[in-house]
Design a protein around this nucleic acid. Structure first.
Lengths: 193, 193
DNA sequence: CCATCATCGAACTGGTCGGTTCGATGAGGA
DNA sequence: TCCTCATCGAACCGACCAGTTCGATGATGG
């Protein structure tokens, strides 16, 4: 986004532009793999602008992760909601959505979980915990509506499949991960009734 | 390990000492969270010694991850082997072993998978891929001996539960992860016959 | 007894990175 | 018209870090 010298854009828009570019670059190359200078160059913003909007690199990272979590959660909820009322269909739709994510060339695992493995305290950790909680909420809800005897437990088991499939898709590359995870998830759903 | 000034220890022992201390410290604080200088101080070795043995920090990290993978894989294989001949018992034993790992206060997820999320190419990535392959081999073997119709697929599904449980145990802290994963794994094993 | 060699400890180098500052520029509103 | 303010671009700073070098030390083996 080329911003001319003295442009007074909507500050919110500037912020959003930086956030968008930073999200992509930080995901591609890792949070420590790209410095503030390069980030600014790519984004088309000066350091001063970046620091005024986000305070610090950590602040930017946190904002990126928050936004990413919001986006992913909304996307999965919509996938489930678009699959009708049957809990099993919704669960299948969640894993199908994951499958299309895994198939993206730029897929590099879950940015949020990846980030939280680097720092075992601090904001990224908190973002990750909330992120997983929101996933858990979605899956537990499906489990409950499917009539599971122990929906909380099943929700956690399904979440393990989601996170495990993400790890495997990242490392073993294959597109099978989502299909296998879906099959396992539906089996667990069936048996937990 | 206090090594006196001009001590000529067995070089292999020096190497092992450095490796052991580095493994602990790098796991506790993250691969980027501790510098070579601090590493040397903790280890009780000089930089020169460390660089003669490992060539670079990356070399040390790679050696640490390799050793860690060997150790973990051996440990899980022994857990399985010590549980008798029944595949289901062996599978249960694997998850019980994971449970005692998760319960360690210093537990911070799988060091190898954590490392590989930081660099999407290079040696750590290769170590992680082989690490997961070895896990997969163990689980597929159990699946095969349990008479699964599709042991390769079931092996992958079980591996997802292992990795997912590790992520959840790291983030949600609870000791339930291993128990729930075990329950799910046994259900899948039962149903895949 | 001497030569070799692993080792220490400390200083040093070169580079990178996060963050700050400043003068210049120009858009928008009063 | 003029003031305010977001912005750029570039220089700058201090900290840290990986890696190198060197003199001193002492154990080991011939």
């Amino acid at each position: 986004m080329p911003v001319p010298k003295g442009a007074s854009l909507d500050p919110a828009q500037t912020r959003a532009t930086i956030l968008r570019a930073a999200t992509t670059l930080l995901y591609e190359r890792g949070l420590d793999g790209v410095g503030v200078a390069e980030l600014c160059a790519r984004v088309g913003a000066s350091k001063e602008t970046l620091y005024r909007h986000f305070g610090s690199k950590d602040g930017l990272v946190e904002a990126v992760l928050e936004a990413r979590s919001d986006h992913v959660v909304r996307w999965l909820r919509e996938a489930a909601a678009g699959a009708g009322d049957e809990p099993a269909d919704q669960l299948a739709a969640v894993f199908d959505a994951l499958g299309s994510w895994y198939a993206e060339p730029a897929f590099r695992g879950c940015a949020i979980v990846n980030a939280s493995t680097q720092w075992h305290e601090g904001p990224p950790r908190a973002v990750a915990a909330r992120h997983l909680d929101r996933h858990l909420e979605l899956l537990t809800d499906i489990a409950r509506r499917a009539g599971a005897r122990a929906p909380e437990a099943l929700g956690r088991q399904l979440l393990m499949l989601v996170e495990g499939a993400t790890v495997l898709a990242d490392h073993h590359g294959e597109g099978e991960a989502a299909r296998l995870a879906k099959q396992a998830a539906l089996a667990l759903l069936r048996e937990a009734r």
